[in-house]
Design a protein around this nucleic acid. Sequence first.
RNA 1: GCGGGAGUGGUGAAAUGGCAGACACGCAAGUCUUAGGAACUUGUGCUCCGGCGUGCGGGUUCAAGUCCCGCCUCCCGCACCA
Length: 823
Amino acid sequence: MSTSQEHQAYDFAYVQEKWLPIWDKIEPFKSGRPDDKRPKKYVLDMFPYPSGDLHMGHAEAYALGDVIARYWIQKGFNVMHPIGWDAFGLPAENAAIKRNEDPRIWTYENIATQKASMRRYACSFDWDRVFNTCDPEYYKWNQWLFIELHKRGLAYRKDSAVNWCPSCQTVLANEQVVAGLCERCDTAVTKKKLNQWYFKITDYADRLLDDMKELEGKWPDKVLTMQRNWIGRSQGANVNFIIEGRATPVTIYTTRPDTLYGATFMVVAVDSELAAELAAGTAAEDKFKQYRDSVKAASDIDRLATDRPKSGVFLERYAINPVNGEKLQIWASDYVLADYGTGAIMAVPAHDQRDLDFARAMKLPVRVVVKTDNEDPNETGIATTGDGELINSGALDGLNKADAIAAINKQLEADGLGKSARNYRLRDWLVSRQRYWGTPIPIVHCDKCGEVAVPADQLPLQLPDAKGLDLKPKGQSPLAAATEWVNTKCPTCGGAALRDTDTMDTFVDSSWYFLRYPSSTNHDEPFSRADIDTWLPVDQYVGGVTHAILHLLYSRFFTKVLHDIGMLGFTEPFTRLLNQGMVVMDGSAMSKSRGNLVRLSDELENHGVDAIRLSMVFSGPPEDDVDWSDVSPSGSVKFLSRAWRLSGDVTSSAGVDFATGDISLRKATHKALHDAAFAVESFRFNVAIARVMELVNATRKAIDSGPGAADPAVREATEAIAIMLSLVAPFTAEEMWERLGHKPAIATAGWPVVDEKLLVADAVEAVIQINGKITERIEVAPTITDSEIEAQALAHPTIIAALNGAAPKKVIARAPKLVNIVL
RNA sequence: GCGGGAGUGGUGAAAUGGCAGACACGCAAGUCUUAGGAACUUGUGCUCCGGCGUGCGGGUUCAAGUCCCGCCUCCCGCACCA
């Protein structure tokens, strides 16, 4: 029978307001008292950028991170689940320019807004460990780390043609150029020759690549593959070519030294110094300069179009092929990159498509030196890049590709003409930025002493006051105008010197922030070794796949550097990684301009925090995108109130002995606890929730048409439901817990211990197949053996009739599930 | 072009090589109601009622959504890296 209490709608708004202040007092998510004996788990969500309030994407990411953190707490772990803000960067600076105020104001306001929203969203963060990367107390350690890298030659300056965003008026790292466009503002990126700071990430290329073995199966394959491709290790050989009229030979890089006899010309990168030098004083000089200028004028976008016709200029110079003495024309072209390999190549048009395209455009010879199954490239215009027997190649004739490479490398090395070499697609990390809102680079430039690091006791080197500074992008750092700040004394000689006016890429801030949380209040060092040894590495990292290369690669690099310095005892920062999908609307990313923006605050207002969290988690696998138009938050509300109503129906008292309860509901409860735990641990949160829903349905039935509300098994089931729900619907769970006669916080109540004996079903249904087709179903004991189930199947009247006297060729028994009779 | 991932009901999705579609959404019918955007019950892959069904075509297996080979489509990443 139903009472009015049962039918009362579940009031999520009331429940939310009721519990927040109580949780503030209890603080269930404080981690890491030193005497804590529980095993540790470090669960980390990627920290947000404070650009306005939280949005639907945050709601998904933090719901997922919360399920994991709350699960491990229930499982008895000492969980650290911290949060902070990635607070330096361009949006704050642009907002500051627009509003004509200090970027600090916008930044800290947004942080306060987001923090309040996170509290309301019931994120299980440890609020004692919060920091913002724009706090001087944090960026002090950016500077300290920069100096440590500088000491070791891992931070250095060089002149180079860098990526330049004409709109942001700043340089960009390679990783921040997406298809030739600035990742931030989508402006076509140009090249500019500048003297800039770099971190020597290329020194770590091999380790970044090889250590990924450790991460296999723990990080998404996609991310590992992306990083491998990004690093782009290639194995080949450097070969020296004598240049007529030049004292020193030119070294080229090739991955196909076996095709050396097929080289018919040489190409140097048009924007390389070598090209300019070779062209100087020749009849081709004017034509070369003209060509070079036209290439410079073209944007990266034009350059990136691979199907565009090849262009180039013959430099009127010749190289000598070291293996056969042939005289080869030297051309300059933009299809050879100045900053990869040696900026010069031997062209083997028969076996490289780009060289072939160039050869055909410039009417240069094509010579086949590898016999493949494919047709002559001279006729087809398609280079034959596969393996085959070497021809027209002197001593290499008759060898296959691998043997020929080995043989020629050996010979080149013996003759001093070359040697095997490796190259990487990865370039050093350009870290200087010509913008205000970032960490000042802690270097003083002294005419006498050169680059001098700011002494540690003078850190943090604080940003000058933004007041009076023009932050508008103008190609030079706004800090340069802060003359009082710029003019300083050399820490070494005491003479007049100038501060470096660039700031650091904000990816520096995020490359080590996860090391700071355990020591967030440490004023003496970026982090203490004791804290690190207690908490690190991160057990579970949760965040978007957008950071697959940039942030994750840089963090891995920093971790290895800090390991080498002796500050860390491990070399990979994130043991496991979960990439959540995006929240989209009607199939496309939400945006104001598209008009499909769903406001998180509206959704929370309409359906409540728990229902939104539940909808996010239940919609599908966490890696998949959530299309909000496919999601039913009202369905979630319905389910939550169904679960909540159970807690009002239970009539047995807290502490009752479950052992005397209805056995079949007890079995359902223990199976749900077992299966949900397994599902959570394998990131199948949607399946975990399905198991809870099944238990809610079973419990409802037990109350209405089973053993009744007073049965202890009903209480056991309802308590289990509340605890499982606490991972995703903390308010509802806490309310249920109270109605069941318990004290807050349910978050730390503990996952009920699963009784293995209750996981065994009384009877299971087995199928009997004939030739793989289901013919009959029988009830069997779960403990039945293969031979017993086979005997039962063969003795079954339906089967005897179906066989009609025929003798089975073979019988496969898989107790207790199936018997397949093969005729 | 290279690399990676994915194709299952009207929809979101389940399924250690062993009953395809769990759990939901939606929809339909019903119960109770002054009422229903509440609650509960039942039904819901297709079907010519024989069967047929996991993008298409092969293969391995007693058994394939799952493993192998070849295609098609879509999504993502990289893209003149020699």
